[in-house]
Design a protein around this nucleic acid. Structure first.
Length: 104
DNA sequence: GACTTGACTAGAC
DNA sequence: AGTCTAGCCAAGT
């Protein structure tokens, strides 16, 4: 049963453990799940995944906020990241190099 | 049940 | 330096 959901579950679990004030990239999460080039899959899973996941801490390589693409009106994300201690730019960009986090 | 689209990234041209 | 292709997984049609 868990074999089919293995990748999806891994991604979701990984996002759940992102500490406050830190962020991760799609490619990074994908790589940690065993598929270094499955960044797209990560985004897809995220979009259809539970809304309780802190996807606001997940960003793309350009440092842009994730849901900014589809949920452009989701202004709460910026405030949420700032509440976590992440400085968000005017253009919804963050210092990815500074806030990137890797699980130990 | 097969095809298409989608919160992405990296490499090739 | 900018544009295009390829690769992954899941959900919708």
């Amino acid at each position: 049963m868990e074999k089919n959901d293995n990748f999806k579950t891994r991604v979701l679990s990984l996002v759940k453990i992102i500490p406050k004030g830190r962020v991760m990239t799609y490619g990074q999460i994908a790589a940690l799940c065993g598929k270094p080039n499955a960044a797209r899959a990560v985004g897809t899973i995220a979009h259809y995944g539970p809304s309780e996941l802190p996807w606001q801490r997940v960003v793309n390589k350009t440092g842009g906020l994730a849901s900014a693409y589809t949920y452009g009106g989701r202004v709460g994300q910026k405030a949420q990241l700032e509440a976590d201690g992440v400085i968000v730019d005017k253009h919804n960009k963050i210092d990815i190099e500074k806030y990137i986090w890797w699980p130990k």
